[in-house]
């Protein structure tokens, strides 16, 4: 009996490791896709995020041309990494509007001055209302909206160089 008992702690450890490994292998926080893909953009009207810039409202989106909405914030580090790629998308002809989440005008101005300003319109979303309405779970996120105001594509997290072809494909498809 005491021989068997000597190995009991090892068995407990094995059970612990097995249970935990199982849990690790099955990540709990899977990405949550917005349920709005394929649906019209919810109605909204944001105040301009910067004095003198055009504000953003849902009526601006059903303009006959596709537009991209970038949900960002000046306090978000991945947004900095994403900035040059947004400039590249703009160069390739993508019209990008921005939603600044829980941000201040002076911070946004400093951010755009430093990392480039690819945006057409910038709306301010001080309480994350629009962000939540869009079904976005964090910053940055980007949506492609077609000319009739229907959300066609959602990109979660920062756009990376490898994502550009896929985004351009979606953009062409939304035309």
């Amino acid at each position: 009996m005491s021989r068997l008992l000597r190995f009991l702690p090892l068995l407990v450890l094995a059970a612990f490791v097995a249970a935990v490994a199982w849990r690790l292998g099955k990540p709990a926080e899977e990405e949550i896709r917005s349920q709005l893909v394929g649906q019209p953009v919810p109605a909204f009207a944001l105040a301009p995020a910067l004095p003198g810039r055009a504000a953003l409202a849902s009526s601006d989106l059903a303009s006959g041309q596709p537009r991209m909405i970038n949900v960002f914030a000046s306090w978000c580090v991945p947004c900095i990494a994403e900035a040059p790629l947004l400039m590249e998308l703009k160069r390739q002809g993508v019209t990008i509007d921005a939603v600044a989440v829980r941000d201040r005008p002076e911070d946004i101005a400093a951010f755009l001055a430093r990392h480039g300003d690819p945006f057409d319109r910038i709306g301010s979303d001080p309480e994350s209302r629009l962000q939540l309405a869009l079904g976005s779970s964090g910053v940055p996120e980007s949506f492609i909206v077609d000319g009739r105001g229907i959300i066609r594509y959602q990109h979660m997290g920062p756009i990376e160089p490898d994502d550009l072809p896929a985004i351009m494909r979606e953009w062409e498809a939304a035309r």
Partner: peptide
């Protein structure tokens, strides 16, 4: 947390 979603909830939604 900016990206927080109750994990159980995330499973349900997914």
């Amino acid at each position: 947390d900016e990206r927080y979603m109750p994990p159980q909830m995330a499973n349900e939604v997914a």
